[in-house]
Write a protein that binds this DNA or RNA. Structure first.
Lengths: 231, 231
DNA sequence: AGGCTAACGCAAGTCCTCTTGCGTTAGCGC
DNA sequence: GCGCTAACGCAAGAGGACTTGCGTTAGCCT
């Protein structure tokens, strides 16, 4: 299209995982004004999503609300979806410091409750959909989140998630939790048992707007997970 | 515009649920040319999705491929997303005649295999996303798929799904299956146990492109479901 | 078979999204 | 502080999505 296939999605994590690029281009300016602009745009987008309930927000509207010029937004993100994806990664990352309650059952329940609470936010479902759309875009771009299909399968067989996968961050946190439990002598759950047994139902119910995710329900999900580990 | 605010999204189910509208407007023409046009558009859209791998297809392109004029498409569906939603409802409805293998375990496994196979189609993930987007649009439009939140909750408590819900059709089929099992003397599973335990993991892995949904995996999902019913 | 009109084809339009070039501001290294 | 230039603001402008009015075709009903 524009002939430049990398700039749009690369600015999302400005100063974190600095891959050792030998001839890295110009040095980015991540602080000060740039950071303020990013902040303002993300904040405005979150507000508009919460108000309107959907992600189809014209960039012009985000520009007006945030006080940032349209052009700047287009140059940095190019599409509304990229903004929402950026927002969702920030939100669903910082929010998810995994609890340490002392027991696996308690940890899992707290985790489930946090996940359910995040989804219950006014923009929770929208952010989840953005995450999904992000995963789909990666796939459409040709690669499977930067890793080829076979090595992804190898990861999954080993009970892990490739580092560039949208769910990777959460996978790491969960693995820590499961390791803690094992070191306490509690049964060792596999990562995908938790993903399938706890996260998947919460996500399904969120996406299809099925209510009833109270503590009793979440508790039953956790119990099922643990029952399998025992058997 | 046309002054008619219901035609766009109402043509999806031409002759099925005729709500008793007293002063129903002009009588629709659902057969012949209209049906051919609908067929051509849906077919072209499915092809383009399978080829390009995503749903961001300009209507002009669908018009060219299908031989139907842009204007006609705009008047009937208004957005690409509506077409894909239409397509997904048709596809995911006709395809899902629920098997009757003689045992609950066999039925559930066959069901899981069909679901996984449908998701493995080149356009499976896209159609699933369209279904989700459809559910979200309903929600954004103000109502919860035509039913208010409380009555939805009541349905869910009773182990059922409201009739207008995107998953309703599949829910009905599944309930039939579960009833059959109960009448054979097998344990009675609740609908949402199947949704949470089988469909949710399949959907999660589809949406996030996690591979490894082979028969062994699907079998383990079914086993877990049944283990809970026995306990 | 014939009338009525829903639905389609066609061709201009209109509106809005997105781009491009250039001047200005301000982050970062010295 | 000073220089360099990344990132922003601004104002046109190009391109594509969507609409509208009207004539034509063909379902559906009697």
């Amino acid at each position: 299209m524009t002939g430049n296939q990398r700039d749009t999605t690369d600015d999302h994590e400005p100063g974190r995982a600095n891959r050792a690029e030998p001839e890295s281009g110009p040095r980015r300016r991540t602080g000060g004004r740039s950071a303020r602009v990013r902040e303002a745009v993300l904040k405005a987008t979150a507000e508009l999503i919460a108000e309107q309930g959907h992600e189809r927000i014209p960039i012009a509207e985000i520009a007006e609300r945030s006080g940032v010029h349209q052009t700047s937004i287009y140059r940095r993100w190019r599409t509304t979806n990229a903004i929402v994806l950026d927002l969702s990664q920030e939100r669903l990352t910082s929010l998810w410091a995994v609890p340490d309650t002392g027991s696996l059952h308690g940890d899992l329940l707290a985790y489930a409750q946090r996940a359910a609470a995040a989804m219950a936010e006014p923009d929770g479902a929208v952010l989840l959909r953005a995450l999904i759309a992000g995963a789909a875009e990666h796939a459409a771009a040709g690669d499977n989140a930067g890793v080829d299909a076979e090595s992804v399968a190898a990861y999954v067989d080993a009970g892990n998630i490739p580092a560039t996968h949208p769910l990777a961050e959460r996978g790491r946190d969960l693995l820590d939790m499961l390791d803690r439990a094992a070191s306490r002598g509690e049964p060792r759950l596999r990562l995908f048992d938790v993903l399938d047994g706890i996260l998947a139902p919460i996500y399904l119910r969120t996406l299809f707007r099925i209510p009833g995710m109270d503590d009793a329900y979440l508790g039953s999900l956790v119990d099922k997970c643990l029952a399998h580990a025992a058997s």
